[in-house]
Write a protein that binds this DNA or RNA. Structure first.
Lengths: 333, 333
DNA sequence: AGAGGCAGTGTTAGCGATAACACTCACGGG
DNA sequence: CCCGTGAGTGTTATCGCTAACACTGCCTCT
């Protein structure tokens, strides 16, 4: 039952026959305590099932040991993995993580989420919301709480860690060109995502650098459904031999559309994705894609935030390299 | 910069020329305050950018407004969605959510996670970890903090909300039998998951009730890879015409294996999954599966926890119905 | 031998909020 | 006209902890 008040430092002190300060010193390892005294205190702690009151501690120290994460209310593989990466790193460092989700990535909801977290007295905030709007929203945020972003754009006003989108997209495009295609089509993500921009830019510049014609961009919204629609649209396209799809989910939809319209992959068309979701190796056919180490991103993000909390100014951009994973969808015909 | 101390109630009071209690009353809406006074106080609040100190408040009220969620360190669609469902419901009710992930669902790590959360002074805890071991672990947990589980088993010692696994599996099995199959094979999940047990039991009992022979169970681990292996294994099986796979990821792997071994779905074999991940409609072929409303599960889970926190004893098991989604993988041949 | 230092412990004063109660009026009823 | 009542406000105690400093011995150094 609830209602049995918790033991306090004073209760422990009384039972151990010492002052509450001595108990505090034992608990926190601050200051010297005789071994015998320490043992007595610990016995009392054990007996009373004492647990420090974090509110009282926070009140006097000004530190809560809490971090806030603003997360997209989504189960997209990337954001979800990043969240766990951050949580793991934070927990190892003794921080707890409070999560607030936003359904729409507009300025108001981000600001609300941050405000909510500040009211919770978090020591620092990570924003996972890789939209253009997010970057802009962050530019207007009050700066009295350390803030870092993940997956953000190059002009973000806060430190950012992310997988190197440009590099990944360049690699996959070059991989396709190296297979002998005259050009590579692109199914992009939503225009307001920063990752979309990076991937699209890399694709475009890589084509240009190789003297290839740059086809019009087909745009999706990351969902398989939109990939499917893009696939139906591209199916009628003459001269289509290679497609770089901006994420694996859309690539799945596109593969489905191609299959329905009698286009064989990889025989007729090569297809590559981005993300390397765990399922990508079991698509039909298994998908060539770009692997992102989201856990590492989470780790670095936490590290940057920790630096900020400690009062240092970390580097502003911290890129994790991407890895090209070649599978059958760009395999021998 | 950090370092500019936050304004306190007293600061606001001074600026507004009232006592700190009056400010407190304005902030919390407790007790009567003259309209003119309130306005003056609010102006001071605004001017000083005052934000209540949650630690001080928690210290004196004994309420932190914090809930803890023990989550599987996984990006599985179900657990991730449930997390967001809980977070949404909690936020609407004014609670914040602290998340702690566990990588292995054994008793020790669950106990550690709960201990961590208790140290954070959460008012209640939700455990998302639908393993047999979890249920057992919870049986031994100290009961002085309200605790509910999600996706748990029927013998769990705490309130539980979940999608009705049994019902969903029964429906999908009956759907397959109704298509004229003499029996239905089953690729099950890991034996230590509660959901695995429910789905498997429903499948078995449904077959028996219809007088169908019960084939041996092939077991996977939820991953596409394991589904693929199950598919390779089943491909050689004589008389195989229908397979119920315990989740969509494994079904994807199985479809891949069937495709490689020349088995046509749905022409030669019917396949159904479970979960209705957003991609399931774009598998090859689109997958018949069972939809689970994880958001609703999250909502109900929060509601149960709120009841517990309020000191009431909610019903012990709260089941959300499952929905059968029929697609081409069990379609006309 | 006296001063200084340090291990080991205690005392006191807040941190910033709410709870509980006290006080001052103005007003209405007997 | 006096008193009870309730609106509006203030005073004080307290939540559980840590910071800062004070105190007591005992040991070491000069």
């Amino acid at each position: 039952m609830t209602g049995v008040r918790h033991a306090s430092l004073t209760d422990v002190a009384e039972l151990a026959g010492v002052s509450h300060m001595t108990v505090s010193r034992v608990i926190n390892g601050t200051g010297p305590v005789r071994a015998e005294t320490r043992a007595r205190v610990l016995a009392a702690v054990e007996k009373l099932d004492y647990r420090p009151n974090s509110a009282a501690r926070a009140l006097v120290t000004g530190k809560t040991g809490n971090l806030g994460v603003v997360a997209l209310d989504s189960t997209l593989y990337g954001p979800a993995s990043t969240l766990y990466g951050i949580e793991n790193a934070a927990r190892e460092a003794g921080y707890s993580v409070t999560i607030t989700s936003v359904s729409a990535p507009n300025r108001t909801s981000i600001a609300d989420a941050i405000e909510t977290l500040r009211r919770q007295a978090v020591e620092g905030i990570v924003v996972i919301a890789p939209h253009v709007a997010t970057g802009k929203a962050l530019a207007h945020m009050p700066s009295d709480v350390p803030l870092v972003a993940v997956g953000g754009g190059e002009h973000a006003p806060v430190p950012v860690s992310a997988v190197d989108q440009y590099d990944g997209a360049r690699r996959v495009t070059e991989h396709l060109l190296a297979l002998g295609h005259r050009t590579v089509w692109h199914v992009a993500g939503p225009a307001d995502w920063l990752e979309t921009r990076d991937r699209e830019l890399a694709w475009r510049e890589t084509l240009e650098r190789h003297g290839a014609k740059v086809p019009r961009v087909v745009r999706g919204d990351w969902s398989s459904r939109s990939g499917y629609e893009a696939g139906r649209e591209l199916a009628g396209q003459k001269g289509l031999t290679a497609v770089f799809v901006a994420n694996d989910q859309m690539a799945l939809g596109l593969l489905r559309a191609f299959s329905e319209t009698g286009i064989a992959v990889p025989k007729d068309v090569h297809v590559a994705g981005f993300d390397d979701v765990p399922e990508a190796a079991y698509f039909s056919p298994p998908l060539t894609t770009v692997r992102q180490d989201f856990i590492e991103v989470g780790r670095r993000t936490f590290r940057q935030l920790a630096e900020r909390i400690a009062g240092r100014q970390p580097q502003v951009r911290d890129l994790v390299p991407a890895e090209l994973i070649v599978r059958e969808s760009t395999g021998p015909r």
